[in-house]
Design a protein around this nucleic acid. Structure first.
Lengths: 242, 242
DNA sequence: GTAGTTATTGACTGGCAGTCCATAACCTGA
DNA sequence: TCAGGTTATGGACTGCCAGTCAATAACTAC
């Protein structure tokens, strides 16, 4: 494995340093959570930070964030990973000039993996004191997720592999931060062909009630619903029911 | 002015170099154009490139792209500028490891400025041979513009200050690359309160025809149409007519 | 069996957007 | 001055989408 040359930061500005950061989100216990680790020492001791670290020689930004996330959460559990934005404010990091490219990662609700001792999931609506600009970057990630839930099939990356309508309702409510109608949600996602029935039904609950039909997402890569291309080409039909 | 330390690139990978690139788009002559300059020498001699250059000490990425665009087109003419994405493929630039953060800039159709001799507007559907990954970055910029035209008021950054319905139709047709109904376009943008009537009418054309009412965009900063938050909070009304 | 709980389905409503057409307002040339 | 051409405008029609609600179905526990 090649050793990474140390990059002296005595000269502020050059040589440039570049780090990657990941906003990894997950729905648990009816709330949206972000993966954070706690600084043990240094200028941000005690503050919580997004996982990430410096870009290494010979790797792309995407490879770097995947590599560095491996230390925190099994990358195979990531159902989606996309680039978010690059931050370049001069004073954003105390150790000199550091650019940061942030990624958005999503983990399905039924995935579990043991976390390192300094790492925990935090509710995004009750964030602890955060290092540097990481709170702002987290907000960007949450905003991106919420926007894309409405015009893509990105729910696949948050939902379990198989789910009932009300389980899916819980996931969407937690992710969006407001109530969602299970009836309407199911009808919309069915019409968009995002979810399909598995034909199975849920095991009867302990408190009674009719067993629920189970569903899964048709695709596990992101697809855009072109429903929302409002000024669409004349020949394109608007209907999604075909 | 501080001198920029030269960054040796003998070691591939470190020290890192970082450049900014701008996809500057404009509607002219019923077609969408991108601002390009022609390499005079070097490995890409003859190829056309996006304007940009290395990030300098002490400036943010946004400041850098604004500074470097000044050499090509008056920045005051830019009605909109937003970060697009950061490219990090290993071999994307021949002179070693160079990250590139791309921006999307938009120039209104009625703005004119003299361009340097090596710089020209090119139709995006007839691009010349392009340097490195600049064709791919241009495609990203065009895709971003087309998406945002349908769910934001971003038309303000392409349209003249005052325009008729059919002039606006021309701008949208050129930007989107397909036919648009003037009737429908006007009704949609009026309902969304993106455009308002000025009360004036266009000067009679030389070939006759009824004078057209004139409009302007209500705001000249980007605003998102929340029409397309399909899974919106229960209390939020759907109507845009209020 | 009855009450309680959860899921499912269908009906109703209002709004949005694509399309078409009749009408309005202007010009030119005879 | 008037007929015909040209461009603009607005109303009407349609299909579809999504939010809401109520009736019904299917199960458990007692």
């Amino acid at each position: 494995m090649p050793t990474v040359p140390t990059v002296p930061s005595r000269t502020p500005g050059y040589p440039l340093e570049h780090e990657v950061l990941a906003v990894v989100l997950r729905v648990d216990d009816d709330a949206l959570h972000v993966l954070l680790w706690q600084h043990g020492r240094g200028p941000a001791a005690g503050a919580w930070a997004l996982p990430g670290g410096p870009l290494a020689v010979g790797e792309t930004l995407g490879q770097s964030v995947a590599r560095q996330l491996t230390e925190k959460v099994d990358v195979r559990h990531l159902a989606h990973l996309e680039q978010l934005e690059t931050r370049s404010e001069i004073g954003r990091a105390p150790r000199g000039r550091v650019l940061a490219t942030a990624y958005l990662g999503l983990v399905p609700a039924d995935e579990t993996s043991l976390l390192p001792a300094d790492t925990r999931w935090h509710r995004v609506d009750e964030l602890p004191p955060m290092a540097f600009d990481h709170a702002s970057i987290t907000a960007s990630g949450v905003r991106r997720l919420r926007a894309k839930l409405s015009y893509t099939n990105l729910g696949f990356a948050l939902a379990p592999a198989v789910f009932t309508a009300s389980e899916l309702q819980s996931v969407y409510q937690a992710a969006l931060g407001h109530d969602v109608s299970a009836t309407n949600l199911k009808r919309i996602l069915l019409r968009r062909h995002q979810i399909v029935e598995t034909g199975t039904v849920s095991a009867p609950g302990r408190s009674g009630g009719r067993p629920a039909a189970e569903y899964r997402f048709r695709a596990r890569q992101i697809e855009v619903t072109d429903q929302f291309a409002v000024l669409r080409p004349p020949e394109a039909p608007r209907t999604l029911t075909g």
